[in-house]
């Protein structure tokens, strides 16, 4: 049995904010900490509310949010 979930790769995030805007439930937030490039990466604290619509994945220019398969 395989399920999908969101995987955020903080190192790839450039804090552009497009995913936050695209999330219909506004679930993505910007972290206080910074990654090695100096950007505040996004995170998904309430993952259980995510409906996996994929909008954030589509608009992310940096492949910082991708699906992962969980078995």
């Amino acid at each position: 049995m395989k399920n999908l979930q969101l995987l955020i790769i903080p190192e790839r995030c450039k804090e552009c904010g497009l995913c936050r805007d695209a999330c219909p439930k506004q679930l993505l937030i910007t972290e206080d900490n910074i990654n090695s490039s100096g950007y505040h990466p996004v995170s998904l604290p309430n993952a259980e509310k995510c409906s996996l619509c994929g909008n954030c994945i589509l608009v992310c220019p940096d492949l910082a949010i991708i699906y992962e398969e969980v078995s």
Binding site: C16, V59, P61, D62
Partner: peptide
């Protein structure tokens, strides 16, 4: 290497 928000990545 693209700037934040640049469409090239998409």
């Amino acid at each position: 290497h693209y700037c934040p928000g640049c469409s090239h990545g998409i």
